[in-house]
Amino acid sequence: MDKFEVLTGVAAPLPMINVDTDMIIPKQFLKTIKRTGLGKSLFFEMRYDDAGNEIPEFVLNKPAYRNAKILVAGANFGCGSSREHAPWSILDFGIRCVIAPSFADIFYNNCFKNGILPIKAPQEVCDKLMKAADNGANATFTVDLKAQEIHTPDGEVVSFDVDEFRRHCLLNGLDDIGLTLVKKPKIDAYEADRKATQPWV
């Protein structure tokens, strides 16, 4: 997993609540057996018309936001299914940070496993950032995970909270499985104990 330290890039505004995982990446793209290549299908139904042509009004199709690295969205972002194809498609598009008032649990979790930083910020802060993101090509934010700060184009600095362990893993690009396998003796001991006390499991 790539480390996440400081990210500078254009922030795209998506002022919608309850953006679900079917909107992020519809089911026809879940047939892949790879993690990569999903970026072109991100937000497919909002991004392309029935003939497969880009819908110019959609934010990521606008020239200023085609290379966005940050997304500012409404509450309950990522609700619905557990498909990790959602963060994979966001990452493959080039977005590494999503800012919203709230996230659905599974999506939120999945982001960290893929080097994406989801930032929960209060509604009024999100409203402000949404407005700043509306500035097109001038909407360049800097997200500093070490300092836990977002710097907006007009010089404003907003601090944010993130779980300490998850921050540590993102900053260092750590692989969860490797970390857990260090605890293998504890897992073995747990299994031995369970076998004795709850043999039916």
Binding site: I177, L179, T180
Partner: peptide, 19 residues
């Protein structure tokens, strides 16, 4: 429900990191 990275974690360790 879990994501695919967690599916891999469970396969490899039979555990999950959770709060």
């Amino acid at each position: 429900g879990i994501g695919t990275s967690e599916v891999e974690h469970v396969l490899a360790t039979q555990t999950l990191v959770q709060a």
